[in-house]
């Protein structure tokens, strides 16, 4: 059993699909100054194997939770305060995601300089695909890029 110290305050992202932990970290914008523990291929009763990500003193907003759900559906987000789990959130895949991601089509109007436009994507399930509402380009979740 792998032992990693508990965090007093912050977020534990649990039940990430095995191998997707690094992608989740990437869409959260990397580590920055945050102390982070990423465990990969941890044994799990529910999923066989899973990844876990612990973020010390960092709490996630709705946009970030949406992104996590797109990369790894069925992930659990535990909010920790004073060493206790105060909230358990099942990350739910949004139907659309606005103003967070960049369209992968370099010619899309949303990538043109200075145009007053907010990116917007519809999210399709099974398999997870994002579709730009402007240029109609579709791409899989592992190709997402942050703005």
């Amino acid at each position: 059993m792998l032992m990693v110290r508990h965090i007093e305050n912050g977020t534990v992202i649990d039940h990430i699909d095995a191998g997707k932990g690094l992608e989740v970290l990437k869409v959260l914008g990397g580590a920055g100054d945050t102390t982070i523990v990423l465990a990969i291929n941890v044994q799990s009763k529910k999923k066989g194997k899973k990844d876990i990500l612990k973020l010390e003193n960092k709490f996630l907003d709705k946009d970030k939770m949406d992104l996590i759900a797109i990369i790894s559906p069925n992930t659990t987000i535990n909010v920790i305060r004073e060493g206790k789990v105060v909230e358990k959130i099942n990350a739910e895949m949004p139907e659309e995601i606005n103003g967070v991601l960049k369209c992968i089509n370099p010619k899309c109007i949303t990538n043109a300089p200075r145009e007053p436009v907010t990116t917007s994507f519809t999210v399709k399930k099974n398999p997870v695909m994002l579709k730009c509402k402007y240029c109609s380009t579709e791409f899989p979740a592992d190709m997402i890029q942050l703005l």
Partner: peptide, 27 residues
């Protein structure tokens, strides 16, 4: 317009109807 998605942007900012005559490889 050569950029896909330009017609949708135009519709968002225009006070009169937009008829898309082709936006890049899109529509």
């Amino acid at each position: 317009h050569p950029y896909p998605g330009a017609a949708k942007l135009a519709a968002q900012v225009s006070s009169v109807p937009i008829l898309n005559g082709g936006d890049g490889s899109n529509q």
